[in-house]
Design a binder for these strands. Structure first.
Lengths: 351, 351
DNA sequence: CTGTTAGCGCTTTCAC
DNA sequence: GTGAAAGCGCTAACAG
């Protein structure tokens, strides 16, 4: 029966700041200053203390630090206004964490804003400055938004982008999926589930102007072109994520092309898309979409949808909070834990 | 710009034990006793204090509690000895948490044991009694093991089963997937990816005596029988999770049946299985297996394997630790967070 | 049965 | 530049 301990200091009591202070021949306060890169310490004192910390693999006790700082932390979540089921799920999962949050003296505030209007979004972000320890934002990739994010970072606020990224900004972290890979995954599924049939594949998106939709379509086309020559992808229908519009566009397309064998629904408007499909009596069309909502769950169970590409909203909510907290505390982030995976959800592995 | 706070007490300083004590007209110590259901408090005092706590939606500050208790917590992970890549991954992910663990004064010890021999496993567990605050165990469903688990629970140790459950025991939590659903998912994938072809489907398992393998096969057969009548499932080959044996059995089967169109590899032995397939020049056979390892990752990229059903080992490792910690602290468990999902991994969504 | 008190290991003034 | 000391909100003795 082999035994092995993970921590460096096995069962003996862990070191404290005081121990480090004594070893380095300085006071508690000085070690604390060095630990947090605060000014007012002579360079060689800094070095000596850092060496002592490193030599002992000293880890300050987070609970003690948390207790001592006194004041609670404030985080803001800047989310799209309007009824988006996916965003509502994220908010619901944040709500489920409320006991967890308050036991840690964390205040999370939701701020609804028009994330599709760059100037409105930027203004909402600017209004937050310095008020908050951390901000999670469903961002829009636009110069004004980028500037607002950078200002927040400059002011010392920790910023994570959520679901939709602004890679060129100085945000500390992105919590969301790789949308190109998500599109590739959708492509592989449509292709494989079509089972060698040849024909056309339709794409319904909200708008090709949305970064995430554009990336998904890009990935989808990549795979279709390289791996499924028997399938030809048709021009993208833009349904603005609305049920009616998406449904009408698709219905017209289905009416004109009897050889459509696959359908990729990139964004929302799922209700309309599904209706067009069934109204046209085209149940055999391979139908792949995004996200597990009450609706897509039902469609998967009924066999109308074949697969949903999903980013786990609960995971995204919790990851955003954890990342903001770790950043605020100066703790390392568990990359692997906070990475959002691209889930393939079919009927039998519905969460 | 709507704003809304999640916590009940918005921005005012959070309440403390002392506030509750004052309001209820008792001392700090009494509130503490009530909070932790400790004996020695008159029933109506208990009621009065509980009411005050509830009325104020009081949440004790975890950091303060953690700091005050002084001693570090000890958790044991009882894992299979021998080289199992999946288990090694779990151990590796625990290793990556070491800074996180020690910042919280948590000691995690690995205990390797023969989990396939019930009496050895039971003995390992019995040996732990009372030494540990929590135990995570890759269990075996056997009366002796069940009794050992129950003894631990009786002694006040928190117990979670990991990957393989003992549902009839008094373990506090199971961290792992629903294997029947995993088997169903595998079945749906083999069926769908076969794309309407008819023929035979082979199953290679470690042993039907292993609960998880048996459950997966059960789920697999369920789906095949009800949804893919064009495919007929052949008798299970038992390869003991060994490459050579699995490979030989499968090679013989492939030689005798030219109409095999699908293959479900339930456990390990993947190397042998893949070799048998390629030696026989049967690249078109739909091949679905379990877990993302260095090997299955390569096979997926090469197109040899079509999909892997995966339980995220990193998530399992962290969930086990978090659940043990929450149990030890008396905190609620975030069910949704700790639930292990059945991941479908194909080439394009490889993690 | 209930209350008082001394810390836990940090952070944060305030002195020197 | 550096140090001393007063808490942060609990827990766990020990008194009564």
């Amino acid at each position: 029966m082999a035994q092995e301990t993970l921590s460096d200091a096995p069962t003996v009591a862990a070191l404290t700041l005081k121990d480090i202070a004594r070893q380095a021949g300085v006071s508690l306060a000085t070690v604390d200053r060095v630990l947090h890169n605060r000014p007012g310490v002579r360079p060689d004192t800094v070095r000596r203390v850092q060496e002592t910390i490193a030599r002992n693999a000293f880890q300050p006790h987070v609970a003690a630090a948390e207790l001592a700082r006194g004041r609670a932390r404030r985080f803001a979540f800047v989310m799209p206004s309007g009824p988006n089921p996916f965003m509502q799920q994220i908010e619901a999962y944040l709500g489920e964490m409320s006991a967890w949050l308050s036991a840690r003296r964390l205040n999370v505030e939701m701020i609804a804003t028009d994330v599709f209007d760059p100037s409105v979004l930027a203004a909402s972000l600017e209004a937050l400055s310095a008020e908050y320890d951390g901000v999670a934002v469903v961002a829009l990739d636009h110069p004004g938004v980028r500037a607002a994010i950078n200002d927040l970072v400059e002011a010392g606020t920790k910023v994570v982008t959520l679901v939709s990224d602004v890679p060129s900004s100085r945000r500390h972290h992105y919590v969301g999926i790789d949308n190109i890979a998500a599109g590739r995954t959708a492509g592989a599924l449509v292709g494989r589930l079509a089972g060698g049939r040849s024909g056309k594949v339709a794409i319904v998106a909200g708008s090709q102007g949305l970064r995430d939709h554009a990336e998904r379509i890009f990935g989808f086309n990549q795979v279709m072109a390289s791996e499924f020559p028997e399938l030809s992808v048709m021009p993208v229908l833009e349904g603005r994520d609305e049920d009616d519009r998406s449904g009408q566009l698709l219905a017209r397309l289905l009416g004109r092309h009897a050889d459509i064998v696959g359908l990729y629904n990139v964004g929302a408007g799922t209700q309309g898309v599904a209706k067009a499909l069934s109204d046209a009596g085209r149940g055999k069309v391979v139908f792949v979409g995004h996200d597990v909502t009450a609706l897509t769950r039902r469609l998967l169970l009924q066999g109308v949808m074949d697969a949903a590409i999903s980013q786990n909203p609960g995971h995204e909510a919790r990851a955003a909070v954890r990342v903001l907290l770790a950043l605020a505390r100066g703790e390392p982030i568990l990359r692997e834990q906070e990475k959002i995976r691209i889930d393939i959800v079919m009927r039998d592995n519905l969460p």
